[in-house]
Design a binder for these strands. Structure first.
Length: 633
RNA sequence: GGGCGCGUGGCGCAAUGGCAGCGCAGUUGACUUUUAAUCAAUUGGUUGCAGGUUCGAGUCCUGCCGCGCUCACCA
């Protein structure tokens, strides 16, 4: 339960004074005739008009605006405030003469304060210093803020740049209290506007491609479609474990069997893995599947989709990311993983056709650092050669295609074109699939295939994956009989695509951490503190209708006794259980200074403080208090 | 999970082992065109938590909690 800080107590006092004056702190209705930016715009337009006409003064523009006070300073009988709504800021020019003594004093004495929401009516004007303002004739509190936001002052330079003083930048506080972060940091607000635009642009693009947006289950009896560990949950009524999806793939492809030509979904995936600057436990995924195209067709769509989205969000397909100019316009560089290795590392891995020989070669060249010799051949190529050695260099958008088969259970084999020239070529075709990933700014941005639609081949792949990765059972895709069943009815040839939308937003908003493009990134629950215990106690007491008073000063005790109950002879102190033992002497000192019974409460127990700590039953404790309380009335 | 770093009033930060300080915010007062307003006075601290070393700990040691970076894991 809330325990006001000093600053909050001051605000509570102001709120109380306002209420005593008959001011409604949280009126049900507010009104405005303009968004702030539009009011300013209207005034500027009128000014321009006036100048063009050569008339004397702009016609008066009467506005009502509403927003949060972000700055307030009083110059005696006149005060200035900046209020802000989503569209922007405007200054309020507040004079005693215009507002009347009563309302003006509320501002002057800061009963109406920074962070409060107000509604103001008056004419637009310019102050002597030239700032466009609302000359307020009426000012009305529409929501009182009890907790002050972190103070950020801004100085606007002549060149339009803004210097911030006293920023709110502690990363943890910003993520945990995102509302305060957003309220104070405009640039953070802008990121999430761009995020929304990104998703809208993707939808528009895919809709225009003739794809159907669908929704598939998040809770699934079987997970699949990617190599990742799932979260497990349980349905009580059905007595069934369910998984949170790790991908949409298998459900979306079933829909092609059902007769749709192309489907897509934008939604949340959940993966039970570590977090990093580019991984969050839940993240937004885009997948689409389109019949009658292969992975080359998907490449074309991918390039156009990224360029279109960047244009919609940033105004150009050329974007700036961490100081690098990145050009998303098609066409992108396309090369096979084999070519990429040849180009970057100067050898053909097909000359080392098994994991032992490849490892031996890499070790000889000093490139085996961090490589596990027991990995499969395909994994060495994809995760080590590509992931570790090549990926960080891929700044401009690059499509890397034709992946080893043992890493790609849902992709079709490479289709042999002309006659196979030699044995090495034959081996390459046999062991690779029509899959591509694409990389931008050194980050993997997505993954796509010519989708496997041969049910018997698919079944073999499931089995093959199980065999290859037997010791990582929970990361391989379980065999999904129903999916195979669907495929046996006939699935059109198709190309599929998956991409992490959060990473795309990072790219378009120039953010290095995925947490800065998620409103509520996953954070560990903070450890409870003594003050949390206190709050919990207050809440428990409130539920039992007990009035609890705070901070009884104790003569002789170093600390104030935190709480006591109305019976006046029962005190409660709070300690984390791991700190209890060392605190005993201190508690006993407190008990000696206190005439009643003293209890100490931990996360899960309550003790009576005596020569030793005597554990007491919670229910009994509360009951004895209730009785005292009733007796006291 | 491993390594490195950080944790000091509401926010941003300081303090060779020696009186816990500064700016902003807050409070009181002055000021009818200010804008990081200004001027005068002033409140506010269990230095993340717990133990230890020491005459003395924000500072050194140990453990714990949280966050960041990084490695591992992982599309």
């Amino acid at each position: 339960m809330w325990q006001p800080t000093k600053l909050e107590l001051e605000r509570l006092d102001k709120a109380e004074r306002l209420r005593a004056m008959g001011v409604e702190l949280y009126p049900a209705r507010a009104g405005r005739s303009y968004r702030i930016a539009e009011a300013v715009q209207a005034f500027l337009k009128e000014e321009e008009q006036t100048q063009a006409d050569g008339s004397d003064a702009p016609a008066p523009i009467e506005v009502t605006v509403a927003g949060r006070i972000r700055r307030l300073n009083s110059r005696g009988k006149v005060s200035f405030a900046h209020i802000e709504d989503e569209s922007g800021r405007v200054q309020l020019f507040l004079r005693v003469n215009a507002l009347g003594e009563g309302t003006y004093q509320q501002v002057r004495r800061k009963l109406i304060d920074v962070d409060d929401f107000v509604q103001a009516s008056g004419e637009m004007m310019r102050t002597r210093a030239g700032e466009v303002s609302v000359s307020a004739r009426e000012l009305r509190l529409i929501s009182k803020a009890l907790t002050p936001l972190p103070v950020v002052k801004e100085q606007r330079r002549d060149d339009g740049s803004v210097i911030e003083y006293g920023e709110f930048k502690d990363v943890e506080s910003r993520y945990r209290q995102r509302y305060a972060d957003l309220a104070v940091n405009r640039s953070v607000r802008d990121v999430f506007v761009k995020r929304a635009r990104t998703i809208k642009a993707l939808r528009d693009f895919l809709d225009n491609e003739g794809m159907l947006e669908v929704e598939t289950p998040i809770l699934q009896p079987l997970y699949g479609g990617a190599a990742a560990r799932p979260f497990v949950t349980h349905h009580n009524q059905l007595h069934q474990d369910l998984y949170l999806r790790i991908s949409f793939e298998l459900y979306l492809k079933r829909l092609l069997v059902g007769g749709y030509d192309a489907v897509y979904e934008i939604g949340r995936d959940f993966r039970n893995e570590g977090v990093s600057y580019k991984h969050n436990t839940e993240f937004t995924m885009l997948e689409f599947y389109k019949a009658y195209i292969d992975y080359a067709g998907v490449m074309d769509i991918t390039e156009r989709m990224f360029a279109y989205t960047a244009e919609q969000v940033t105004g150009s397909a050329r974007i700036n990311y961490q100081g690098e100019m990145i050009d998303l316009s098609p066409p992108w560089k396309r090369l096979s993983i084999r070519e990429a290795v040849q180009e970057t590392l100067g050898f053909d891995y097909m000359d080392y056709p098994c994991s032992q020989s490849l490892y031996g070669y890499l070790e000889g060249r000093g490139l085996a650092d961090g490589l596990d010799p027991s990995d499969t051949w395909g994994r060495m190529i994809v995760e080590h050669l590509l992931g570790s050695l090549i990926e960080p260099r891929l700044i401009q958008p690059t499509i890397i295609k034709d992946y080893p088969r043992d890493m790609s259970p849902f992709a079709k084999r490479i289709q042999a074109g002309a006659a196979i020239r030699d044995e090495k070529e034959r081996r390459f075709i046999d062991s690779h699939t029509e899959r591509f990933e694409f990389f931008i700014a050194g980050m993997e941005m997505g993954n796509a295939f010519t989708e496997l639609n041969d049910p018997r081949d698919q079944q073999d792949r499931f089995v093959e994956m199980k065999r290859l990765y037997a010791d990582e059972a929970d990361e391989t895709t379980p065999l999904d009989e129903d999916y195979l069943n669907a495929m046996r009815y006939g699935m059109p040839p198709n190309g599929g695509f998956g991409s992490g939308v959060d990473r795309m937003v990072m790219l378009l908003t120039d953010q290095v951490s995925i947490r800065d493009v998620l409103l509520y990134p996953h954070l560990r629950a903070p450890a409870p503190t003594e003050s949390d215990l206190r709050g919990q106690f207050m809440l428990d007491a409130a539920v039992r209708q007990l009035e609890v008073q705070l901070d009884l000063p104790l003569a002789g005790a170093k600390r104030k006794l935190a709480l006591y109950l109305p019976a006046a002879d029962v005190g409660v102190e709070f300690r984390m259980s791991n700190a209890l033992e060392g605190a005993l002497p201190q508690l006993q000192n407190m008990r000696r200074a206190f005439s009643g019974r003293l209890y100490v409460m931990t996360e899960e127990r309550i003790y009576r403080v005596d020569d030793a700590l005597e554990e007491t039953d919670f229910a009994e404790f509360w009951q004895s208090l209730s009785q005292l309380s009733i007796a006291g009335e």
